[in-house]
Design a protein around this nucleic acid. Structure first.
Lengths: 352, 352
DNA sequence: CTGTTAGCGCGTTCAA
DNA sequence: TTGAACGCGCTAACAG
């Protein structure tokens, strides 16, 4: 199985390499080729099963037409997620995995549209010294970096935006010259809160990590919750922000609470379990809104009302942004915050 | 930002290109270089920020060290199950997306271990004429093809295994010369059935698409269910295989049924909803086992007992297999069926 | 209309 | 121990 080169085709067609190239690339409209030779070359190429060598093309053109995706490891507060064979995955891990999956699916869809492929670089959090240099080897023309909400992606600052185009994914905190795509955490939480307000709720708690959690997303969600309350003329009560399910139960029993906005679906579900166990009915006694719309949410708690996290759209936006960046668009045009939307199911209801 | 080549480094270090190459690649142990020049070259390369051009290296070496992953579109038409439960969300779609996600996450993990990257090719189901030729362009040395359970991946037969190494993912039906990685659908369903048998159940139904569904996975699961029954000395009753929830309810009321093995979690969940609506309690009246262990399964139906679908391990096996294939291992060593395991939660209980 | 020529950046051979 | 020369496969400029 020896490789077929342009030379072989040239010989078979009885023409020069250059002619073959002209015919096959279809470029160089200035240099016209006779119908007859075109025919012959095409036929020869076909019969020999000729496929242009992409490395040679790239070397020549200095362009690869490929983009790279770097998935930094999730930092689950110390626990790194390595493949645990034969062990039951815990939900957090599963969510991270399926999250990356949704991302990659979104990227795949976008790549399909742009008619391109992308390279996935698994990046460890324990990078070697020369971290980053591999991305300047000409294999890819641009990079999408999936950040971790608790830490900025190291490559974001270590790589020079002038040498390689970069888009950060899932963050809005980037150095100059770098684009980003994120979802609108803040207004998502505001939507959740407004939904509850529109149902007549006023005593609304925020459950889960918030402003000082060290996680930009949760911080934004918490902000959105408070902003919505303020917009409605209410003053957010710090006491109504907690990460402790028992405290929620206590507050409810004290009549200080009729609804809860959860920082994430998973936390909300866990809270729901505790509530049920405590004999508190959802939504009869208490309304509950989650955030993320994870897989299975429609079956959870009889149908969890939640804010949809448009993961794929976000990924597609990153891909589109990177393409634009490579085309020479200005960075400011390559920063997208994808809007969320409510998915209203059965854990919220009108007050009273 | 002009590109730094080996020539620049050579000039800066006051040596020839060849020497730089020798120093930096570390190959050619036969041609020793003095400590002093090594030092000088390293320093120059470092200062200039030299990164070898991978296209040139590939062209020279005829190896890319990259592998490709082709995700065929899921065939969401025809006999595939179409359950749009909620206008908001097409669950099947979501499952497919997160499935691909888990796959890609598994591949990412494996790639991390092998210290390699991979190219994702989004392949449409409406391929152009020259489909496949792009994979022979020297960009990748091997291919992982994610198949669709209802149809064989077209590239599997269209590409020559001698020209490019191939691993099929999520199937066991491959042409000669091609490896595969799949999960053990058959023994997974057998495990589910045996679990119910061990709880004293004897009247066990199989719910969902089975043997003649045109889907190899469901067919295998159905087979596993029957094999387990037979192994226990029971004769599978064809009447106890149905895709109709109402029929299950009827059979239960007629006393012909105490437990159900579902073809998938999603179908099982839907059945669960219908059962609850009909006033049948799970697991008090009827035991239920799903298959897949989808995200959120632990919160569904009070905790769905199910068979875990080891997606990531399967993906990792595919990556390992492809690496082995590229190393020159025989194909027979590159065919893996990853075992499943039961995840016992709260939808099954002892009979009586 | 077609062929010749000259590199793209690199690694390897061979000669010094 | 080092360097000059060659060619991987391709495309673009120029010459015919």
């Amino acid at each position: 199985m020896t490789i077929v080169t342009i030379k072989d085709v040239a010989k078979a067609a009885g023409v020069s390499q250059a002619t073959v190239s002209k015919v096959l690339t279809g470029n160089s409209p200035e240099y016209r080729v006779s119908r007859d030779t075109v025919e012959r070359v095409r036929k020869a190429a076909d019969e020999l099963g000729y496929v242009p060598n992409v490395s040679a093309q790239n070397l020549r053109s200095k362009r690869s037409g490929l983009i790279g995706v770097v998935l930094n490891e999730f930092d689950s507060s110390g626990r790194s997620m390595h493949l645990k064979l034969n062990s039951q995955l815990d939900s957090i891990q599963t969510i991270h995995l399926t999250f990356d999956g949704s991302l990659l699916s979104g990227l795949t869809e976008a790549a399909r549209i742009h008619n391109t492929a992308f390279v996935v670089y698994p990046e460890s959090t324990h990078p070697s010294e020369d971290i980053g240099s591999r991305f300047l080897d000409g294999r890819v023309e641009g990079l999408i970096l999936r950040t971790n909400p608790t830490t900025q992606h190291p490559l974001l600052t270590r790589l020079d935006p002038r040498r390689i185009k970069m888009m950060a994914l899932w963050t809005q905190d980037v150095p100059p010259g770098v684009g980003y795509a994120d979802i609108d955490h803040k207004s998502g939480a505001a939507q959740a809160t407004e939904h509850l307000l529109s149902l007549g709720h006023q005593k609304i708690a925020f459950f889960g990590p918030g402003e000082h959690s060290g996680n930009a997303h949760f911080s934004l969600r918490h902000q959105g919750y408070r902003a919505a309350l303020q917009k409605a003329g209410l003053t957010p009560d710090p006491e109504l922000h907690t990460e402790d399910p028992q405290k929620v139960i206590g507050l409810f029993r004290a009549g200080k609470l009729t609804a809860v906005v959860g920082a994430t679906d998973l936390q909300t579900i866990m809270l729901h379990g505790d509530l049920v166990q405590a004999g508190i009915r959802v939504p009869e006694d208490l309304s509950l809104v989650g955030f993320d719309n994870i897989l299975g949410a429609e079956f959870i708690a009889g149908g969890l009302t939640t804010v949809h996290h448009p993961t794929q759209e976000m990924a597609a936006a990153a891909m589109n942004g990177l393409m634009a960046l490579i085309r020479g668009e200005t960075v400011s045009k390559c920063r997208t915050i994808v809007p969320t939307h409510m998915v209203i199911r059965n854990t919220t209801r009108k007050l009273g």
